[in-house]
């Protein structure tokens, strides 16, 4: 008995690994090969001198980038900080602007969605403002708010509020008549209606808006920081590196930006998975 259990447990781990590999290989191998070939071609192109962009190996060979890569947490005061701090500063701005956008977007979206008259009045403005690029907002924000920090948050806000607002309004409009009829027959109070019918029903739409918005917000912060000189943030870090011609630093920062954007998107998707009931997806 004992031997058999032992033998089973001793073989279990490798068996599991093999099984996992057999199952996941089709999912892992193609992207891995894809990424690897992309890096190889890039390296070859930069080595052949066709482009001034350094190859991916320069991230390691270049001294400055190696330091940044190895010590993301260093802080020498002023603007000279590790990439972790730079990214964190940008993220905090995004969090502030995005939260504000979520709050305003959902509230106004509900009002617009429940009230056709207001919708008619405001929709042209929304559609118009939605089309204004984040960068175009920067000078307006700077003039209006005078300071870098609030201006950056405003740019985040104004960029990311539209998808949230428009999706929420659409979600509210799309509440099936049946649910509304149930609410009417039960004579639900406004609060009961919002909590029990409106929000649960519009939730999938709201989350779609939130997910689009987080991507836009992250795009916007980089753009905003590049223009607003003299602040800690990954965007200005890129701009600074460009001014001083540290090309491989830019590459490293771009990798950070991509990775963080991906993580943010996944995080919202996970939240959506947690909150929105299975029947509604």
């Amino acid at each position: 008995m004992t031997t058999s259990i032992k033998s089973r447990s001793s073989t279990a781990a490798p068996n599991f690994l093999i099984q996992f590999w057999q199952k996941q290989a089709p999912n892992i191998l193609p992207p891995a090969i894809g990424i690897l070939s992309f890096l190889v071609i890039w390296q070859l192109i930069s080595m052949s001198g066709l482009s001034r962009i350094p190859g991916p190996l320069s991230l390691w060979t270049d001294d400055r980038t190696r330091t940044l890569l190895l010590y993301p947490f260093y802080d020498r005061g002023g603007l000279d900080k590790g990439l972790f701090w730079q990214t964190l500063a940008s993220l905090i701005r995004v969090a502030q602007g995005y939260s504000l956008a979520a709050f305003v977007g959902i509230s106004v979206g509900v009002i617009v969605g429940t009230n056709p008259l207001i919708n008619k009045a405001l929709d042209p403005i929304f559609q118009f403002l939605r089309m204004v690029a984040p960068l175009a907002w920067v000078p307006i924000a700077l003039v209006a708010l005078q300071q870098n920090q609030p201006a950056a948050i405003f740019v985040i806000f104004i960029t990311s509020v539209w998808p949230i607002l428009i999706n929420t309004a659409e979600g509210v409009r799309q509440i099936p008549d049946d649910y509304n009829n149930v609410a009417k027959v039960l004579q639900l109070s406004r609060k009961e209606y919002y909590l029990n019918i409106l929000f649960p029903s519009a939730l999938p739409y709201i989350f779609t808006g939130l997910r689009i918005a987080i991507g836009l917000a992250w795009l916007a912060i980089i753009a905003a920081e590049i223009v607003m000189s003299g602040i800690v943030g990954i965007g200005f870090f890129i701009w600074d590196a460009y001014q001083q011609n540290y090309i491989s630093e830019i590459l490293l920062a771009v990798i950070y930006i991509g990775a963080v954007g991906l993580l943010l998107d996944r995080a919202i998707a996970y939240l959506q998975h947690l909150i929105v009931p299975a029947e509604q997806k």
Binding site: P176, D178, Y179, N181, V182, K184, V185, L186, Q187, N196, I197, P200, S201, P277, E279, Q280
Partner: peptide
């Protein structure tokens, strides 16, 4: 003049709230 629970309706497509 308005709907009310004294005239409760059983709708054709059930109208249950799927999140409850």
């Amino acid at each position: 003049k308005e709907p009310g629970p004294d005239r409760m309706v059983v709708f054709q497509n059930y109208s249950l709230l799927p999140w409850r």
